[in-house]
């Protein structure tokens, strides 16, 4: 099998060309999965005997939450590539992954709060470990964004953020388990209905699965689009970019 296309992905110019071919397919797939997932989730899921129609929020929430966990690994891998091989493209991906990840975490928190406000009767609940650790993942992602904007020199910012992403990736895991432990020991009383186990029939997890695929595709599409923007911006003096701009 010919693997040269994979190496070519490393150069901004070929990445731009290759993703130009991929994007229509990705966007079409994303659109299809999103439409099916959202319609299925919002219109056709039967009401849960305990939670009523609120489970429909969970379909979006679970998908976004699961996807938001992918950002630190993405950034850590891209960061390692930046630090070891100094590939510019890896940093362009990492740079855009941080704010996008912060948004995903925020949407997770927001949809979780919406659901919690109905089911638990409160918008915020410190006794839920997932809420608290998601909050700190949100903070850590924001700190990477903050560091990026604080350092003016592009190359230095790339490597500093790469390092912080790797440290943050380890940290998120430690924080997650610490917070879980803290909850078990500190506040044993959880609000009733805190576990999602009530809603796990196929009529619930099938649309969730569709939604997860849709959100992952959304992540891929938005990350690729943002990276392409970044490429055009950073390579604006290169001949191929000027040709591209002139021809469009």
């Amino acid at each position: 099998m010919n693997w040269t296309w994979f190496h070519k992905l490393g150069s901004p110019k070929s990445f731009y060309a290759i993703t130009s071919r991929w994007l229509p397919w990705l966007i079409a797939a994303m659109g299809a999965f999103l439409v099916v997932g959202v319609l299925w989730a919002l219109l056709f899921i039967p009401p849960d005997y305990q939670q009523g129609y609120t489970t429909r929020i969970l379909v979006v929430h679970v998908a976004v939450a699961g996807t938001s966990l992918a950002f630190f690994p993405i950034m850590a891998v891209a960061g390692t590539i930046t630090l070891v091989w100094r590939m510019k493209l890896a940093d362009m991906v990492a740079k855009n992954a941080a704010p996008l990840g912060a948004w995903f975490s925020f949407v997770t928190l927001a949809t979780g709060s919406l659901w919690g406000s109905v089911m638990w009767g409160t918008w915020w609940e410190w006794t839920d470990a997932r809420l608290v650790s998601m909050l700190f993942q949100f903070f850590l992602l924001l700190s990477v964004v903050a560091l990026r904007s604080a350092i003016e020199d592009n190359d230095k910012a790339a490597r500093a953020c790469a390092l912080l992403s790797i440290v943050g990736c380890i940290n998120v895991v430690i924080i997650k388990y610490s917070v879980e432990w803290w909850n078990v020991l500190h506040q044993p009383n959880s609000p009733v209905g805190m576990s999602n186990s009530g809603a796990n029939g196929p009529e619930f997890w099938l649309p969730t699965l569709v939604m997860i695929v849709a959100v992952y595709l959304f992540l891929a599409v938005s990350l690729i689009l943002a990276t392409r923007n970044e490429i055009l911006q950073r390579e604006r003096k290169a001949q191929w970019v000027q040709d591209l701009v002139a021809s469009s």
């Binding site: 700190f136 903070f139 850590l140 924001l142 700190s143 903050a146 560091l147 604080a150 350092i151 230095k156 500093a160 390092l163 912080l164 440290v167 943050g168 940290n171 430690i174 924080i175 610490s178 917070v179 432990w181 803290w182």
Partner: peptide, 26 residues
């Protein structure tokens, strides 16, 4: 990470404080 920057006070806090959560918990 921030030693060469002009104003570091707040960015240092933003980076360091979330990392300290496990220590604070235990």
């Amino acid at each position: 990470l921030t030693v060469g920057l002009g104003s570091r006070g707040l960015i240092l806090a933003v980076i360091t404080l979330p990392m300290s959560v496990p220590v604070l918990i235990f």
